[in-house]
């Protein structure tokens, strides 16, 4: 028989591939942020989970250029990106859009929602659509 019994549960016995599958089921960024702060392995797991996503929506999050770009740059398979302003205001600027155009996933990205963005000008949009 196994020696379990009084042993404490140990999620670290799970290989990172399984952790990633569990993190894939967490959608609100707050849950991902919490998980990322647990330990180094979890941080890596969250990063890889975000990196594997086809859809990211930052609508409703008060998020700036740098944070959006950091996520998009790791999401190589991204197909849909929502950075619309929504209630709180996702604050992506022309500079952010330009940075986004350098992401690896940009060729596969079929939809970017910028609805309600007030700080993006034609300049930024034209830049990303050469």
């Amino acid at each position: 028989m196994s020696t379990r019994g009084n042993e404490e549960p140990h999620i670290d016995q799970l290989p990172i591939e399984l952790l990633i599958r569990i993190f894939d089921l967490l959608t609100p960024f707050k849950d991902l942020a919490q998980a990322s702060s647990v330990c180094g392995k979890w941080r890596q797991g969250v990063k890889e989970s975000i990196g594997g996503r086809e859809k990211l929506s930052f609508a409703g999050w008060k998020i700036n250029d740098d944070s959006v770009i950091r996520m998009v740059l790791i999401a190589d398979g991204l197909k849909e990106l929502d950075i619309s302003r929504s209630r709180w205001g996702c604050q992506v600027t022309d500079h952010g859009l330009h940075q986004l155009s350098t992401a690896k996933c940009i060729c596969d990205l079929s939809s970017v929602s910028l609805w309600g963005s007030t700080v993006i000008t034609d300049k930024g949009v034209v830049y990303t659509n050469p």
Partner: peptide, 26 residues
């Protein structure tokens, strides 16, 4: 979560700060 799954916090002070900053918006 750490307590539930018996996970040790292995972040250095610098790393912990970096993680906080990374997801501060969330």
């Amino acid at each position: 979560v750490r307590k539930m799954f018996n996970v040790e916090n292995d972040f250095s002070v610098v790393e912990e700060k970096a993680v906080r900053k990374e997801f501060a918006w969330a």
